[in-house]
Design a protein around this nucleic acid. Structure first.
Lengths: 208, 208, 208, 208
DNA sequence: TATGAATGAGATTTCATTCAT
DNA sequence: TATGAATGAAATCTCATTCAT
């Protein structure tokens, strides 16, 4: 446990992390420039190295923070009191919206997968940071199956991946898809259309 | 129209492209090393620049070829004679298997999206390279709707993106997912399980 | 307005400029080697790029400084109090001596003209850096014409170019001229002979 | 003495030389590209090397030809039958016009002087290729001195250099001078104005 | 003689990292 | 803690020249 930082140092650290998130999301790990991060953060390179040691450590820290931020928001999603279908719709919608609102998280994940999760595997935090969504999902599905509203043969992990994928792919590949289809998928209307579709897919699939 | 290359030049060009595909998929555009590509290809840097002009042009060419290769395989998929449900299952399976068999294509796409499709937009070829899968999908859905086997309110483009996403996300993020879930998603068994799931999702959703 | 450099940075910058002037004068823009400039300057290549951005920007800066240096010396030439003929002789002599003492300036000019003044045209400084010699020349000629010592039909700009050319050509082409004529024009005696001649040419011409 | 070339080979050689002259004049020795010369000439690089051995040998050949071409035109200038002043004016005009009409010759000279005449010194031909203008000049001056039209104290070599310089500097530096003075010295009118001036300077100086 | 492809040495430029203050 | 300057390794790219046909 490092000794607590002064408020000033903590602020510097935070600014560097914010700048790094933006730069990494924009250009990837290899493409990101340490100079640019330092400049954007208003700090300087020496500080960056004092706080994080290397570009790669900084990357890992940024990645951990991105996961933690998502987990924190997931924790706010409360569906226990809702009927199963509505609960499931809410989970699906949350995921799509979060993904659409945080394309930088998507970009980080894609980059990290290019590196075969090499940095994530070194993380002490992330693997322990179980996604609350998985529990919610499992619970909703159990309630739905019990009430007869949902089919009973669903693997929660597969459905979780599906739920993520339906939003993630659309967000992650919105630029190439926009180019191929010749229409802008970055608009609010496009997001709403996608939202309706993914909710229908999941609920349609879950019908018994 | 460039003049035709000699057999020797074409072979060199091909070797460079193959090496570049591997290196780009492994390390991304910024992370890829021109030296490494030249060494792998058995050619030398000078030839790489003679044929492609710059690392970025080479990237674009590799990307175009990857799209072309996928489109070529898609053209082989023949589902016209099959009943709609079976035809749809085959399309979904093809897509997952192709994606799983070509993680380098997934990696290229992810990288290209980091660059906001900047290179793809400069491509004269790719946007014109319409995916045969879209036509097949549209046709199968029409047949299914007519026969009453499928629901009739489906946007083919959304379903196409969904179909891609169900496989792509799983392949693209298999490293982070494996790390998070603590199980190896790269095995044949894992692929088969995913295959069963995605077919069920799509066919389940399409029930009227 | 760039912020002021530290004394250390300014010294490094100066050493690079000095080394660059020598290297550019010796080998031209294309022929100059960035490695050589860095080595001569005692700095390293990285600093060269930090200060100047590119070889071409460095060239432009060197060129601007060379013009500025000449203009600065010109400002020291004071002929207002001298009788016209003597004043004119002094201007002509100054110009020849400066040119002979600064063959590197001549070399830069020749190079820049090969590039059709492409860099000079991008300079904000140089075109605004009016030559004090032109004013001196104009003034002396007016005084001479008034007193009847000089003819009155002379275009000052043409005479200025003539004055420059009489020295510049001799210095710029001293190597080919030496080779053709089989005698060394680089000696002090040769310079003195040339000096007598050019003064005679200009004063001879100016007789009414 | 190399054996005579076939007509076809001689034509190829000629095309290469023409292309090289243009490229060298445009970009200097270091800046010229062998590829470009080969492409411009319609030949290919192998031919260039077969004929000339190296870029530097090609440079020397181009330089020798440029000198030879000037000497050939000088030989056509016939002033023996003209009165001295008119003869001198014609020599001066010829020189300015030739220089203005052949800026590529000026560019070659400047480049060669950057190399301290290193290539010219290796030439067997050029130093032996005495300029006919020098003889004409000497003769005209002698006639003028004898008749009392010209002063008698003029060093012909100095005057020769002066005559060359009055035109050469103006042509060689027309780009920087145009930039500095903010007017285009490349026009026909500018050339005529310069012509009047240089004739006046020389004849004015030569008055007894 | 002619040609397209290939090459190796070396050029310019970039970048993560460390030093000196 | 903070900062501007400096560095060396390595990246991309270029070019005169030679090879293979």
């Amino acid at each position: 446990m490092p000794r607590p930082l002064s408020a000033r140092a903590a602020a510097t650290r935070q600014r560097i992390l914010d700048a790094a998130l933006a730069e990494f999301a924009l250009n990837g790990l290899a493409g990101a420039r340490v100079d640019e991060i330092a400049a954007r953060s208003g700090a300087n390179k020496r500080m960056l190295y004092a706080h994080f040691g290397s570009k790669e450590e900084l990357w890992l820290t940024v990645l951990e923070r991105a996961y933690a931020a998502k987990r924190a928001e997931e924790r706010e999603v409360d569906v226990d009191h809702l009927p199963p279908a509505e609960a499931m719709a809410r989970l699906v919608r949350f995921n799509l919206r979060y993904t659409a609102a945080h394309p930088e998280f998507v970009a980080l994940l894609n980059q990290e997968n290019i590196h075969r999760a090499a940095y994530l595997q070194r993380s002490a935090e992330v693997p322990a940071m179980y996604s609350p969504l998985v529990d919610s999902l499992r619970d909703v599905m159990a309630r739905g199956a019990e009430s007869g509203e949902f089919r009973g043969d669903v693997d929660p992990m597969q459905l979780y991946v599906t739920m993520l994928g339906l939003g993630h792919f659309w967000v992650a590949n919105r630029h190439t898809l926009s180019t191929i289809f010749g229409q802008d998928l970055g608009t609010g209307a496009a997001l709403e259309a996608r939202e309706r579709h993914v909710v229908e897919v999941v609920l349609g699939y879950l019908r018994p």
